[in-house]
Design a protein around this nucleic acid. Sequence first.
DNA 1: TCTGGGGTCCTGCGGCTG
DNA 2: TCTGCAGCCGCAGGACCC
Length: 428
Amino acid sequence: MSRKQQLHRPGPQPGPPADDSGCPILHVDMDAFFVSVELLERPELRGRPVIVGGVGARGVVSAASYEAREYGVHSAMPMSRARRLCPQAVVLPPRHKRYAKVSAAVFEIFRTVTPLVEPLSLDEAFLDVAGARRRLGPPAAIAAALREQVREQQGITCSVGVASTKFVAKLASTRCKPDGLLVVPADGVEEFLHPLPVAALWGVGERTEEALTRLGLRTVGQLARVPLATLQRELGNAVGSHLNELSWGRDPRPVVPRTPDKSIGAEETFATDVDDPEIIRRELLRLAEKVGARLRASGNAGRTVSVKLRMANFKTITRSRTLREPTDLARVIYITATELYEGAGLERVRLRLVGVRVENLGPADQAPRQLALDEPEIGWREAERAMDQVAHRFGSGAVRPAALVRRATHGEAEGEAREGSRDGRDVR
DNA sequence: TCTGGGGTCCTGCGGCTG
DNA sequence: TCTGCAGCCGCAGGACCC
């Protein structure tokens, strides 16, 4: 579902089985995952162009069926453009909870093979099957069995790349989509990689591709032959050496089942641009509540609060502040975010997006905590935990700060209170 | 054409400190 | 006391990923 999938080409012709003896890494990627899940409940849409994505004025495509892709529709494309390219497409709003449920079931299947499962997103993961060979057979056989189980148990298809490294396995799965399996033998990595366009490499996005094109480099093979020092001079030390390594198929990263979160954030694009500071502040409050609740649910607290402000012309600025102590309290996050917003001097500027993020995370139970002089013994922390419990029992809208419910008390639907702020209307 | 929302990582700069 | 330097940290911006 990524931009990289536009690089997809038909896989190699069937032939004798490839040598998978040096290939313990599997990359499993669900095919058009969000669409596939929707089709489980709407089988009548099979074979038709289907798009899952934001249905608002500023939505983008989250996933497109292969039929829709034939019209040029792809993920991250503005929905307005997608509708123009494929007016007959059926457009469905995303249902992330539903996808998360199917994803969890698929990942359970993965874990019957190996505990070394590294999720990349809801719809893809790396598996290290080196330890499963004696029990389940060679990697290619394990991959085939996995694909079969996912199809049988969940009714959706996936593609699997089998290789010696994560990076090559990922390219292999992209290459054999949809519903495919591709083994890249350890001694065939260069032959596989070098004809590919440079944009196939991890870390080469639009900008880097432009820079490489300016250097006359279009394929991975061409890039591989450029001296390391030249790449580092043109792209920076880290990116230069990273691309040099990848171009030779070198990627020593192991499959890591769980990496701790480094930041937790939330952001919102308004349906129309907003220049009313009161509405912006209310949105910051809503986002701070959301981030605080997610921090507490994950058991984390963070020291750095940052806000993101995107103006009507798409210019984006961020402002951050590091606190003396880590926090997981929405109140602290909100106060800090508001001060950062006010300090940015954008109070009469039209904004299209605001975001709040907390970084420098660590376990909340190990965070030092000093009671402020004016803080009662039972204070905001306890109040917010009580809110968490109410939300857990009755749903996330059951209890909220007064500033976020005023409109609902005027006899309007709760959901509209939020939509109101997104519309840029004054909801005080 | 008109660009979501969740993240990670890198770079450059300036301030602080020993 | 002042200066130069290195290392660290905080901050801001940007590129990239799914």
